[in-house]
Design a protein around this nucleic acid. Structure first.
Lengths: 213, 213
DNA sequence: AGATGTGAATGAGTTCACAGCT
DNA sequence: AGCTGTGAACTCATTCACATCT
């Protein structure tokens, strides 16, 4: 498996999709599948499946197709989902608390192991089985828990400082929910999820509509 | 203002970003700005700003730049953010409840006005100032509240059916948090936000790391 | 002079078409 | 024959370079 560094986010996201499809097939007892059939079942593109996989090696058997279990295992390893990734949430307001409760119930390789907030009123509370600690202790929380992913759920004006704190504390990647571009440290990639942008994209399509009752 | 239908999602998302930057500048009392300076301040591309805007009309003054208030107003209208969009949440589990609490506190043109769930145990509960009603009543809830956006927060295997329900109930656009591709009705676009995919993308960059310890 | 708006050039991403393996 | 893996063609997106307007 030639580990091509620096695949595009688009490709990586599709690999996640493929993996999910393969797990679904495993649940149905399917053992072999062609790119063609995979594409038909899940509304994907057969060529694109092959091209995406080709970036990381040769996983199929010509004339036959792919071994479902094998390919699922390969993609799991490729995406780094074969071991636990511990996460710490920065900002335990509405969104942070919501994520703690939501992600806390998630199975799989991702586990929320800590949450911090700057507001002393929130420190000490328990949210979804998690004790909130003070932001000043972030580095200690990260060290104690072995967190490698930071979840940013702070207001826009605090995002950059909190990201920098996370970098100093030693996390390796950050998922940000703050509606702002964060200037990135080269070794600590940020992935942004901006709910407002998504809602505003939808609003664009509602312009012509009689709206609001 | 020539309303170019069908701009790419990439362009629309950047327009949202520009609008946010302009509001920030308004807060600072800036009244005029060039694409050049806007790009420098917010780490954007000056050419791209101009190209993006060009799809919808001419908003600037050559040799001068853009009027901040005017452009903000134009983009607000363009994106349909000049009036309220009511939203109904389908699936009041962990994620749905989290979103109700989170989005409920949000200002701006988006407002959560209803939530439904299939589980009778959840019906009647109040979540973030919202009374949960039964999924069977979805069409009535949409009609009563004037909701135009549906928020899908149900498990993968229920997503397609719930999307179809939303379409029948009369919403015009859907924001889905379900980890699955939904087959779309042509008049009801779906925007997908998949937290797992984003986490898995980050995990890819952690493969080399000593992790979980 | 100075900044916008835009055709032309480049680059990224997807699809096509087929060589090559089973 | 059948399906993968891949160079070539094509489409979509970004960047460049400059004509145009104030």
């Amino acid at each position: 498996m030639s580990t091509a560094e620096s695949a595009s986010p688009l490709t990586l996201n599709r690999l996640s999709v493929y993996l999910r499809c393969l797990r679904h097939l495993q649940g149905q007892g399917v053992r072999r599948i062609s790119s063609q059939e995979l594409a038909e079942r899940y509304l994907l593109s057969a060529t694109q499946i092959r091209k995406d996989l080709a970036q990381f090696g040769e996983f199929g058997i010509r004339g036959v197709g792919y071994d479902v279990d094998q390919l699922a295992a390969d993609l799991t390893a490729l995406l780094g989902l074969d071991r636990e990734h511990r996460m710490v949430i920065v900002g335990m307001g509405n969104l942070g608390s919501a994520l703690a409760r939501y992600l806390g119930f998630n199975q799989g390789p991702f586990r929320v192991v800590g949450g911090v907030d700057r507001d002393p009123a929130k420190v000490g509370r328990r949210v979804g089985g998690l004790a909130v600690r003070h932001s000043d202790e972030l580095a200690r929380v990260v060290a104690e828990t072995g967190a490698v992913i930071g979840i940013l759920a702070v207001p826009a004006d605090a995002a950059q400082a909190c990201y920098d704190d996370l970098v100093r504390a030693g996390v390796q990647a950050v998922l940000s929910f703050s509606p702002v571009h964060v200037q990135q440290h080269p070794a600590v990639p940020v992935k942004s999820v901006d709910l407002r942008i998504h809602l505003e994209e939808l609003a664009f399509f509602l312009r012509g509509t009689r709206d609001g009752g």
